[in-house]
Amino acid sequence: MNLLLEIITPEKVIYKDEVDEVVVPTVNGEIAILPNHISLLTQVNPGEMIVKKGTNQQYLAITGGFLEVQSNKISILAEHAIKAQDIEVARAMEAKKRAEKVMSEKSTDNELRLAQAEMIKAILELKVATRHKRR
C-alpha cells in the first residue's frame, strides 16, 4: 500500500515521495497517519514531524499549516517546513537572537508579530536539530 506525501510551502515543494507512516502534531494532539487512512482535514501545530519510510526516519521542523488526507495522498500546506539535516544551527541561533532583540525594543505591532513568528521558527528548528543529532 502506497502512501504519497507532499509538503508544500509558499517557497517550494519540500517533500514529495512515497512513505510508510507520517507523524504530525495537530491542534488536537499528535497523530500518526498510516496507509488507508480515512479522509481527513486538520490544522497543523508548530512542532516536529516524523516521516517513516522503510527503516529510514526523516525528521522535519514544521510551523503551522493545514493537512489533508485523501485516498492515500497526504498534502501538507505549511508556512514553513525544513528537513532536520538542512537546519543550520548557527543561523537559527542568530535568528532567535535577532527576534529577541526586536521584541525587547519598542516595536510596532507588525514588527512584533513578525519577530514572534521568527522566534517560534528558530526555537523549533533548534529543538528539532538538537534532538535529531542526539539520535
Binding site: 491542534v27 479522509s39 482535514l41 486538520t42 485523501q70
Partner: peptide, 15 residues
C-alpha cells in the same frame, strides 16, 4: 466524499 475534520469545519474555515 466523506471527510473527517479536526477541529470541526466551522473552526477550520476562518483561518
Amino acid at each position: 466524499s466523506f471527510t473527517l475534520f479536526e477541529p470541526g469545519p466551522e473552526k477550520l474555515l476562518p483561518p
